[in-house]
Write a protein that binds this DNA or RNA. Structure first.
Lengths: 111, 111
DNA sequence: CAGGATCCTTTACGATACTG
DNA sequence: CAGTATCGTAAAGGATCCTG
């Protein structure tokens, strides 16, 4: 545990850069089950703006967490899926859920 | 797993609100080992501004993750420690480290 | 349908000076 | 030493219009 040092490039910061922010984890989670088109993602995450969705998808692709597949059809059809590395964030998401539940239970008890 | 729905208050969002951002996880991690004074925290996280450190500590206290203890001495002595709930983020941090290492290994192989 | 371009607001973050 | 107050910048996020 003490092997984490807070330097310019520590594991916490690396992960924050990859999946930090308001949307990336939500997007990755949606793609866990199966590949989705842009319009499908929009429905699953209703309150994201189109701009942010496209922008975040682009960075996820660039950092190697997601894959963009263009079917080259008309009308356009594009599908987003996860790489192995993208799938590797699932345990992190599960841990976040676990923490959230723990937190809420604690806080309900204490008021 | 599919019990996570992307609504206004899903576990991912709850956790992001509690420990999201650039600094909170780094601060919490520093406090895992033992309570620290403000000046000690500043040394451990050299590139955080004083303003952010105090501000983030305040929100961590308000959300029940950290505790502020004022010794009432002169010169001032204040110590920050973790609540049980604050300690509960350790698995999350460990998972982040695990992911970062996995990511870096993958990316080194692929170039 | 997917997404580029533009403009705008809001929030996060930071530097510095000051106080008991 | 532990903060507060103020000011400024940078980044994140969002609304809208436009295009192949």
């Amino acid at each position: 545990m003490k092997s984490i040092r807070i330097t310019n490039r520590c594991p916490i910061r690396t992960t924050l850069e990859l999946v930090g922010g308001k949307w990336k984890l939500l997007i990755l989670f949606q793609l866990m089950e199966k590949p989705l088109r842009l319009s499908e993602l929009k429905k699953q995450i209703p309150d994201i703006s189109e701009k942010m969705l496209i922008q975040e998808l682009k960075t996820l692709v660039e950092s190697g967490l997601a894959i963009r597949r263009n079917f080259g059809e008309v009308p356009p059809r594009v599908e987003y899926s996860l790489t192995d590395t993208g799938r590797a964030v699932l345990p992190l998401i599960e841990e976040m859920r676990h923490f959230a539940l723990f937190y809420e239970e604690k806080m309900v008890k204490k008021g």
